[in-house]
Simulated assay, not measured.
Amino acid sequence: MNIDINCDLGEGTDLHSCDRDAQIMPFISRCNIACGGHAGTPEIMSRSIENALQNSLKIGAHPSYPDRKNFGRKSLAISKKKLLDSLCEQIGQLENIAQELGAKLDHIKLHGALYNDAESNIELAKSIIRLFNEVYPSLKIVGLANGAMQFAASEKSKSIIREGFMDRQYLNKSQLAPRSLTNAIITETEKCLEQAVCLAKGLQFKDYHGGKLQFFVDTICLHSDNPQAPVIAKQLKQHLKANGVSIAR
Score class of each variant (00 low, 15 high):
residue 72 G to P: 08
residue 82 K to Y: 13
residue 114 L to Y: 07
residue 104 K to T: 08
residue 97 I to T: 06
residue 64 S to C: 06
residue 99 Q to S: 14
residue 105 L to N: 08
residue 101 L to I: 09
residue 101 L to P: 03
residue 60 G to T: 05
residue 100 E to K: 11
residue 59 I to S: 00
residue 89 E to D: 12
residue 95 E to N: 14
residue 72 G to F: 04
residue 81 K to G: 00
residue 87 L to N: 01
residue 79 S to Y: 14
residue 87 L to P: 08
residue 75 S to M: 12
residue 102 G to S: 03
residue 80 K to P: 09
residue 91 I to E: 01
residue 104 K to C: 09
residue 55 N to F: 06
residue 57 L to D: 03
residue 84 L to R: 07
residue 107 H to K: 06
residue 76 L to D: 01
residue 92 G to H: 13
residue 95 E to S: 12
residue 98 A to I: 05
residue 54 Q to M: 13
residue 82 K to S: 10
residue 66 P to T: 12
residue 85 D to H: 11
residue 100 E to F: 14
residue 119 E to F: 00
residue 112 G to I: 06
residue 77 A to V: 06
residue 95 E to T: 06
residue 75 S to Q: 11
residue 80 K to N: 04
residue 110 L to D: 03
residue 118 A to M: 02
residue 97 I to C: 00
residue 57 L to C: 03
residue 70 N to Q: 10
residue 83 L to Q: 01
residue 91 I to N: 00
residue 75 S to L: 09
residue 112 G to F: 00
residue 93 Q to H: 14
residue 118 A to R: 01
residue 60 G to W: 07
residue 71 F to W: 12
residue 73 R to L: 12
residue 96 N to T: 15
residue 93 Q to L: 11
residue 67 D to A: 04
residue 73 R to W: 12
residue 80 K to T: 09
residue 61 A to N: 04
residue 109 K to F: 11
residue 82 K to W: 15
residue 122 I to Q: 10
residue 67 D to K: 05
residue 56 S to R: 15
residue 55 N to M: 05
residue 122 I to V: 00
residue 76 L to T: 05
residue 63 P to R: 05
residue 60 G to N: 02
residue 93 Q to P: 11
residue 120 S to F: 14
residue 83 L to G: 08
residue 56 S to P: 09
residue 113 A to V: 03
residue 92 G to W: 13
residue 106 D to I: 12
residue 64 S to E: 11
residue 91 I to S: 03
residue 103 A to S: 05
residue 62 H to F: 00
residue 75 S to G: 12
residue 69 K to S: 04
residue 92 G to E: 10
residue 90 Q to L: 05
residue 82 K to T: 12
residue 101 L to K: 13
residue 58 K to Q: 15
